[in-house]
Structures are given as structure tokens and as C-alpha cells.
Amino acid sequence: MVGGPDSPERPPARGPGLGTKIVRGLGELLVTAGVIVLLFVVYEVYVTDWMSASKQQDANQALDDKWRNERTLHADPLDGESFARMYIPSFGADYKFAIQEGTGAQSLDVGPGHYTETAMPGHPGNFAVAGHRVGKGAPFNDIDLLNSCDAIVVETGDSFFIYRVLPKKDEVAGWAHGAGKRPQCAKVEPMLAPDEPDGGLYGKTFGQEIVLPNQGEVINPIPNQPENAAPIAQRASLMTLTTCHPRFSDRERLIVHAVMVKQYPKDPKNPGQLPPEMEEQA
């Protein structure tokens, strides 16, 4: 960005003409603009990651402290407060993010953010979480690579909830004899009811979908159904991840739906214990 070694130490005998000055000034401005754009890329790809990494670390620390000390674990979290942690074992043992309440910019700077009006982990309905795909730690960078039945482990103050990605649309037909035979799929079934019109309440719920930004119904208690489509008793416990799609664009949203298959209450006498699903490899 400096005028390099070619910067004139001594002014030329006769100053450059006006045209030269304009062209030179324009060139400098263009070069400067290019450097600023490059710096912005560095900022977006590296600097926001560092900033978010330290915020995420603080959030995890705060969670540990809270879980160790607090007795009233079921109070609704405040906006921006960390209240749960998610793991995706198939993304590696170090994939661990504190989840914040709310999907505002401040929550999402720290890590994944919970849509305030949706269910809490383990509850019937839809525990919906948004996360960045570019910069800011990019927690949801690779969720397009999640396969059906991959585990998403959500830890709260008193439990671990095991969610598994639902069958994708093209796997549903041959599920019982195809993808569904893998051991991790033991408790995962396509949710659509083949003998009901449109597959029943969950006829439009698959492991992955790509929707337009205004299709907020993907995070409804029953995805893609009206909010009041069914009483709470008929709702499955789902988890939904949302992020931007395609990467670097806001044209669409990438949605991943998972269903809860298991809950492990935490044993207060054995605090470090982790569920066996955390050992699963990709």
C-alpha cells in the first residue's frame, strides 16, 4: 500500500502535467481498492474466525460454569445466552459448538443460534438452529455433507439428546432394503405415511432440503405444515439446521432435518461421561 521504492525522493525538475496526475491518482485509487477487497477476504475468512473462536470459547466456559453451579436448569434462556452444546461426531471429535438463544447477529457471531419461538432440545416439536457457513467459525460450513442417520448430539444441563438426520428424499423409497440397513439407522425411519394423502403430517419432512429464504415453515413444529397442524402430543421431536445456500450466497437456504432417537440423562456422579454415539466416525 505504500509508494514503494519508486516514490520520488526528489521532486522532478518540472512537475508532471495535469493529465499525468489524474491518471496516476486514478491508478493509485484502483490499486488501493483492490488491496482493500483482498483485506476484506482475509477478514472474512480468517479474522472473523479468530474473533468467533474466542467468543465461542468464552461461551463454552460459561456453559460449563452454569451447568456446574446452577440448580434451576429449566428456566428459559435469555436472548444471546448459551444454553446447550451440539456435537456432530462424523465431523470429527473436535466438532463442538455452544448454542445461543436467538438468531440475531450477536448470537450467530458466537456460534449456532436457536430460533427463539421453536422447541427446546428434546421437546416435541422442532428444535431449530441457524449457523454461519462462511466465516465466524462457520459452524454449518459442511452440513450439506451430512448423510442420513448421522448423529447430531445436543447436550443440555441435564441430558444428552441424540438426533439423527432423516432419510433424504431419494432414499425414502428403498429405505428398508437400502440405506436404512446401516447399523446407525436402527431407529431412523422415513417419516412420511405412505398410505395417507401427501404422506401425512410428516410427508414433507426429509433429511435435507433447499428452500427459498422466505420459506420459514421449514422450522415449524412439523416442517412445512401450518404451525397448528397437530396437537403437541402428535409431534415428533425434531431438530432442524438452517444455513445459507449456495455457499457465499443468500439466494436459498440449506435445511437439514433430524429426529431424536435417544436421550441419556446426565449422571451427576459421573460428570465426564459421554454417550457412545460420540465415538461414531464418518
Binding site: 483485506l39 476484506f40 477478514y43 472474512e44 479474522v47 472473523t48 438468531t103 447477529a105 450467530l108 443460534g113 430460533y115 441457524a130 449457523g131 454461519h132 457457513r133 462462511v134 466465516g135 454449518f140 428452500v211 429464504p213 422466505n214 420459506q215 420459514g216 421449514v218 422450522i219 438452517t242 444455513t243 445459507c244 455457499r247 457465499f248 450466497s249 443468500d250 439466494r251 437456504r253 435445511i255
Partner: peptide
Amino acid sequence: MFVVFPWVEPMLPFNQVTT
């Protein structure tokens, strides 16, 4: 890095991750 970019950033498309 600390003033201009954080201010510009929310206006950019890849930060829209919610429905």
C-alpha cells in the same frame, strides 16, 4: 478490520443464514 469491515459485513449475502 475492526471498524469498517464489521460495519459492512451484515449487508453481505452470505451472512443471511436464517429463514
